[in-house]
Design a binder for these strands. Structure first.
Lengths: 283, 283
DNA sequence: CGCGACCTTGAAGAACGTCAATGGTCGTGG
DNA sequence: CCACGACCATTGACGTTCTTCAAGGTCGCG
């Protein structure tokens, strides 16, 4: 009762809103999920929210802040594999596995709701809507993960950074964490070194590509706030197609689909080898 | 009745075996799942099993063959984001979304069981074990996907190829599709161009790295069959740690965990920046 | 025999990493 | 108040990795 003021929200409302957008939740289900949160913790910037490999017995939901899922490699190298944004469950998979194959770190001060697995399993068994919502969030994470493979695998450094900015802006906007009227902008707590860890690039090269994006007036000059000066231009620069982030599956399933933007590839349903020119990145 | 002989198996047994290894399935659940398969189709090498973006109303389970999930980029470039091996559900996510954000192609002739979403949703709602098994397979796919991000993001070309071979062998061995006594070997239907699409490399460079792996006597000389001559050596070459593929979650959850191999990173639970040397790949 | 798909090789160049140094900002302690 | 150190952004020079381009070789198949 005395600690009710120390954090902006003690209920996992951002998460409930995200889940509701993915799958319909009844008022009862929302209330039950909110009641599963036993506590809220504040994690300092640079600290781990979940350590790699350690057993986990609760889900962590990001209420506020910026988190990354990352894996460490020999010789101190690191690859960030996912951005955790407000409203995201950071370790939903651990409900199944009981541990994570990667770590979750706080890029800046994070407010995290803790929801024990036991309670979530109970709810998931009793409420089909909740079980479905969990699977929806999992599916969305998978789609993002696949796109990250494409990003680091087949895009130039310039495209990679532009694409990641487009993706992050789109995700933040969906939950109301990016301003969208007039000037598009969002807080950016990542250092250039961390952005390199997310894109598979060196710090120096990240710096040069950011300068190029700024020189072309696609983004603003500040490093702690991404201002998108030319949204269509930035999407072009990153060859960004938000189709994989679309969450209106209920609508998309029934209708004939008009939600994707570019989607104009070979309509014949074949990928025989002789038709493709050659692999490799294009600068 | 007349087509019963045309395919080796008409029941999705390899999939049931995989699911059973992930989560306990009762005999009744196995039987119910097997009954959900309405037909088996044979897809020729080079053809798509599921086209990108098209509505899907059934799950496709690979009984035999080798499939890839891939995304196309402008100018004919391609990134393969997943290998579909016998026993894998190729498009489980589409149960939720009703469509795929990527295509699924047959690398060589594939036998595919078709299980309509309606029936799977029914079973998933009636049998908690089935619902859990679906989520388990999803979680495993996610873990693999994250490791692919690491692979293309932070490993050298040589390491990437070695790692992918290690992963594929480990997955095939788990389902009995790779020989393990005496000589370790498995069928390899991918061309060097396709291997480049999976690792984010050019065909030419894939060729040179494969030659290096062969010259170092880590793998055999044949291009249609990977023979692992030095399994510890190949794991070292790819910095391969199978921890993310471990499927014994029921055991792993309770015990203190001794299943991982390397797992000897910073035990302090912090990743403050000044401690890491520098990002980037190492050859 | 000719064609297409694939593997292989060489040479040249672009993209990106590494090394090293500079300056800026901020918080801390004297 | 200033000095100091940590972290970060930035810049230049240089080296490596990887791509691109081009050509030749093998094999299976019509």
């Amino acid at each position: 009762m005395e600690a009710a003021l120390c954090v902006p929200r003690c209920m996992p409302d951002p998460w409930l809103n995200k889940l509701s957008a993915l799958a319909p939740l009844t008022a009862e289900e929302r209330h039950a999920l909110a009641g599963a949160a036993t506590r809220t913790v504040v994690v300092r910037a640079g600290q781990d929210i979940v350590a790699e490999g350690r057993p986990v017995d609760a889900c962590h939901v990001l209420l506020d802040g910026f988190a990354v899922r990352y894996k460490l490699l020999p010789q101190g190298r690191r690859q960030i594999v996912h951005f955790g944004l407000p409203g995201d469950a950071l370790d939903l998979d651990a409900m199944i596995t009981g541990r994570l194959d990667h770590a979750v770190g706080a890029v800046r001060r994070c407010h995290v709701a803790v929801l024990p697995h036991g309670a979530l399993h109970d709810l998931s068994g009793r409420h089909p809507g909740i079980a479905r919502a969990f699977r929806c969030e999992s599916v969305l994470d998978s789609a993002i993960s696949r796109e990250w493979v494409v990003n680091v695998g087949r895009r130039s450094s310039y495209q990679r950074i532009a694409h990641l900015l487009c993706e992050t802006f789109t995700r933040l906007r969906a939950t109301g964490h990016a301003s969208d009227e007039g000037e598009r902008a969002f807080d950016w707590p990542l250092s250039q070194s961390e952005l390199g860890d997310a894109t598979g690039l060196s710090t120096v090269h990240v710096n040069r590509m950011l300068q190029q994006l700024r020189a072309e007036r696609l983004i603003g000059p500040r490093s702690d706030l991404i201002t998108i000066l030319d949204w269509p231009g930035l999407q072009r620069a990153g060859t960004f197609d938000p189709g994989y982030l679309i969450q209106d599956w209920r609508q998309a399933r029934g209708s004939g689909a008009a939600e994707s933007i570019v989607r104009a590839e070979a309509p014949d349903g074949s990928h025989t080898r002789r038709e493709r020119p050659c692999p490799g990145r294009v600068g």
